[in-house]
Amino acid sequence: MAGRPLTRRVTPDARGMSALPETEPPARDSLYPSYAYPDYAWAMSIDLDACIGCGACTVACQAENNIPTVGREEVAKGREMHWIRVDRYRTEAGRTAFLPVPCMHCENAPCEVVCPVGATVHDSEGLNVQVYNRCIGTRYCSNNCPYKVRRFNFLQYANTDEESLKAGRNPEVTVRRRGVMEKCNYCLQRIRRAGIAAEKEGRRIADGEVVTACEAVCPTRAIVFGDLVDRESRVSRAKASPLDYALLGELNTRPRTTYLARVDNPDPALDSDGG
């Protein structure tokens, strides 16, 4: 993020603008193949104006996806395992800006082209999925990810022998072994569960039927998840906002996770020295 806008911010007068002050770069040609999504195209929108940086999304994701606790020493070595982190930045006005960062699920995913064993692939619904039993731990994908959201399981952090710990894990999610990459998958188990139920009833998955763990726990409803094929879905409406932008959009990764810029409404009385 060095030399780039850390988080996008606008004033209340800009609510009706057609674009942010830092305009998004135009779409460029790419060597990546184009994808068609006739059924579903899952995506996420995060409202930076609503995010309070509480970290509840990180805790919920850890519980939902059996993410191990690695301890202070491993975190100090840069080996944290959280699939969604909340970056904190100090603004020019001395305030704190929060930026939740999960896997972006890029259309032009830099991680996919460098994996020598095809462990990270694009699925038919636009998800960047991780095949754990293919991964050999080269970490090329992590090195090629500009968002730094892929985690490497350096050690056997998960205790698979203690019987009392097994009851605290989500049985719908794999407990990963050491030596593999892992990351956010938009709570794929919840998507599949809703898809099976909808298929039995002969219908499409309804908007709001799939709720990711981070979306469910967010106290300010800053996170919205849904299907872009449904033009009336909540996430489609959020992405139609003039405040919508992609993190590091100039890299042409075309992420499925985008953000709504923060609207600053400063109070001169509070910003003054005597406020």
Rank of each mutant, 00 (worst) to 15 (best):
132 Y>A: 15
153 N>K: 03
161 D>R: 05
122 H>C: 07
146 P>N: 13
120 T>H: 13
121 V>T: 15
148 K>M: 03
152 F>W: 03
153 N>W: 03
120 T>C: 08
116 P>D: 07
144 N>V: 00
139 R>D: 12
135 C>E: 12
131 V>P: 01
146 P>T: 01
131 V>W: 12
120 T>Q: 14
154 F>P: 02
154 F>Q: 08
129 V>C: 08
166 K>W: 04
158 A>E: 04
139 R>L: 03
155 L>Q: 12
143 N>C: 06
142 S>F: 01
161 D>E: 13
136 I>A: 11
149 V>H: 02
161 D>H: 08
164 S>G: 03
132 Y>V: 08
149 V>E: 02
143 N>S: 08
163 E>D: 09
158 A>K: 01
141 C>W: 00
123 D>I: 13
141 C>A: 10
164 S>A: 10
159 N>L: 02
142 S>I: 09
150 R>A: 04
115 C>I: 15
126 G>F: 10
133 N>K: 07
131 V>F: 11
156 Q>K: 09
134 R>K: 13
145 C>D: 00
159 N>A: 03
121 V>C: 14
121 V>E: 13
150 R>I: 08
163 E>Y: 01
168 G>W: 01
165 L>V: 12
150 R>E: 03
140 Y>T: 02
117 V>G: 14
133 N>S: 10
153 N>Y: 01
132 Y>L: 11
129 V>F: 04
121 V>P: 10
155 L>K: 09
143 N>G: 05
127 L>P: 01
157 Y>P: 00
167 A>Q: 09
159 N>S: 01
163 E>P: 10
152 F>C: 01
